[in-house]
């Protein structure tokens, strides 16, 4: 972070304020709780992508493969009688971590463009597979009949989305703190080193490929948790959860927020979803026009997404 004259204490204070503000929307915007939970979930998904893209430098447009698998894992578990929500999250986490680790052998090699295409290819193949296995997944009609038990046996998922919001908030916060820990650990620093100069890290004896594989595995697991949250809070899994479009959308969200900055994914999700929702309400037919203009303007005004632009702004003011 380039914020110059901020003490680490102030920084932590700001982070706390950010989360408190998010939490307070429970009372401030009771009409928008479902939107807010979906923003949180996509935020977590974007953070997971950031771990792969921003920290490990693995360009992927196929991350929905894990989001979707997590969603199906949690959805299928609940559909087949085990409705306890946290076990669904755990299952999604484990399944996607395993899957991510296995696939990392395909992905942690080659140049950017190659990785990009392989991730797209894998994601599309997963989508086709889910369609083919419609007996299990429900195919394009979606996975129906998901019943989630009350959280902790106490809080039922309600029509206003209150439980869903609190549940999503707590899980996303926990996952985020975990990611924060990973990123600032020696492992995270090694990733940053690899991102900046792969050759030097190799030269000082860092096991580059293994580190990248672990990062991809973590990233996949987080994406799976995000997918599971989406499945549980909406009690439905559509095949779109696995689609290329979802992968592309989350990439847009992350790039809009700013990569490699941890909060970029969350900020990106907040801005993108609110702007999207706002434009779509104003003009259901042609909101894409305004959203497109918005993206173009963001690129033109500040490179590196919103976080990139903000960090420059701050530096200038302080200099």
């Amino acid at each position: 972070m380039k914020s110059l004259s901020l003490t680490p204490g102030q920084l932590t204070g700001l982070e706390a304020a950010f989360w408190l503000l998010l939490a307070s929307s429970f009372w401030l915007m009771p009409d928008h709780l479902t939107l807010l939970s979906q923003i949180l979930i996509l935020g977590l998904f974007a953070v997971s992508l950031d771990l792969a893209l921003g920290y490990a430098g693995i360009l992927t447009v196929g991350h929905a493969a894990f989001f979707g698998c997590g969603a199906y894992a949690a959805g299928l578990l609940a559909k087949h009688g085990w409705g306890e929500p946290f076990s669904g999250l755990l299952l999604a986490l484990l399944v996607c971590a395993a899957l991510g680790y296995a696939l990392s052998y395909l992905i942690v090699r080659g140049a950017d463009l190659t990785r990009l295409m392989i991730t797209i290819g894998v994601c599309v193949l997963f989508g086709e597979l889910a369609n083919r296995l419609s007996g299990i997944t429900g195919g394009t009609d979606g996975l129906q009949g998901i019943v989630i038990d009350p959280v902790l046996g106490l809080f039922e998922f309600d029509l206003w989305g209150k439980t869903a919001f609190v549940y999503a908030f707590v899980v996303v916060l926990a996952m985020f703190l975990m990611t924060r820990l990973i990123v600032s650990s020696p492992f995270g620093l090694a990733l940053r080193g690899i991102h900046d100069s792969r050759k030097r890290m190799q030269a000082i004896g860092s096991p580059v490929a293994a580190r990248l594989r672990m990062a991809y595995c973590f990233s996949a697991a987080l994406a799976g948790v995000a997918g599971a949250l989406m499945a549980q809070t909406s009690q439905f899994v559509g095949i779109e959860a696995l689609s290329f479009n979802r992968s592309a959308e989350i990439l847009i969200i992350l790039v809009l927020g700013g990569t490699g900055r941890l909060y970029g994914g969350l900020i990106g999700a907040i801005v993108y979803m609110l702007v999207h929702d706002w434009f779509a309400d104003l003009n259901p037919q042609y909101w894409m026009f305004w959203l497109g203009i918005f993206l173009i303007v963001v690129v033109m005004v500040g490179r590196g997404g919103i976080m990139g632009a903000l960090s420059r702004l701050v530096r200038i003011r302080r200099a």
Binding site: A248, L251, I252, V255, L256, Y286, W287, M288, F289, L291, G292, I293, F294, L295, I296, V298, V299, M300, G305
Partner: peptide, 13 residues
Amino acid sequence: VLLSIGLVFVSVA
């Protein structure tokens, strides 16, 4: 990527 996707959105609309 962001710029060209923005252009795609505009062109579709």
